[in-house]
Amino acid sequence: MKKIKIILVLIFILLVPKVAAEDIDPFDILSKIDSNMTFESAYAEMKMIITIKKRKITKKFKSYSVGNTKSFIEFLSPVRDRGTKMLKKGKIIKIYYPSAERILRLSGHMLRQSMMGSDMSYEDMTERSKELREEYSGEMFQNEVLDENECYVLMLTSKIKKQTYFKRKIWVDIKRFVGVKEELYSKSGKLVKVSKVIEIKLFKNRYYPVEMIMEDKLRKNSSTRIIVEKIEFNIAIPEDMFSERALLK
C-alpha cells in the first residue's frame, strides 16, 4: 500500500506541470508578451552590429514608437546609411533613401529581404501576436530551463502553406514574461533563423530586452546583435512623426 502511495505521488508530481502547460493557450502567452512589452510611446537609441564572416559592421539608429503599430527609425551611421529613414504603420513599411531622395513603399517579396543588411527581414519587424493567432495553430511543450530561467516552450505551426516561417519554437521566460529565444523553421523543417535575448532590464515594473542576437542560418557565418543604448518610455511624440513628411525632412 505504501508503495502504491509513493507511485501515485510520483505520477502526480510528474503529470501536474505537464497538464498545467498543456492547459495554457500559447497565444495568450504571446499576447501577454506583447502587452508587457508595449508602452504607450517610446524613444530608443540603438546599435546594430552585423557580423559576416570576419567583418563587423556597426549601424546606429534612433527610433520613436507609439504602441506596437507605429514606429519611425532614422539611421545615424555609417555614412552611407546616414539619413535613411523607415516608417512602419501596421503592416506598411516605407523607406526614405537620401541618396535617391525618394520614398519606397515595401511590398510582397521585398518584405522578406534583409533589413539594412542585417539578419533580420522587414517582415520580422511587422509581426504581432494577433496575426500569429490567425495564421498559426499552437501547442505547448514541456517547460524547459534556459540559461537558468524556467521557460514555457511554444510550438506554432502555420495554417497557411506559403508561410515564410512554417514552424516557430518559442521559449518564454515564465517569471518575466519575455520571449527569450525563438527558432524559425521552413516547411521542409530546415532551421532558417534563431534569435536569442542576451540581456533583459526592468523598466517601470516591466521587463524589456535590451540586447538580442539574431542569426539568419541561410547566410553563412552571419549574425546581428541589437543593443539598446538608451530608452525612454511614455514620452510625447508628435503625430506627424509618423508621416511621409517626416521621412522627407
Binding site: 533613401y97 535617391a100 525618394r102 534583409s114 539594412m116
Partner: peptide, 16 residues
C-alpha cells in the same frame, strides 16, 4: 526607376 540594393559594406543604397 529606383534601384535599391545593399552595397559591399551592407549599407542600403538607392539611385533613381
Amino acid at each position: 526607376l529606383l534601384l535599391v540594393t545593399t552595397d559591399i559594406n551592407y549599407s542600403t543604397y538607392a539611385l533613381p
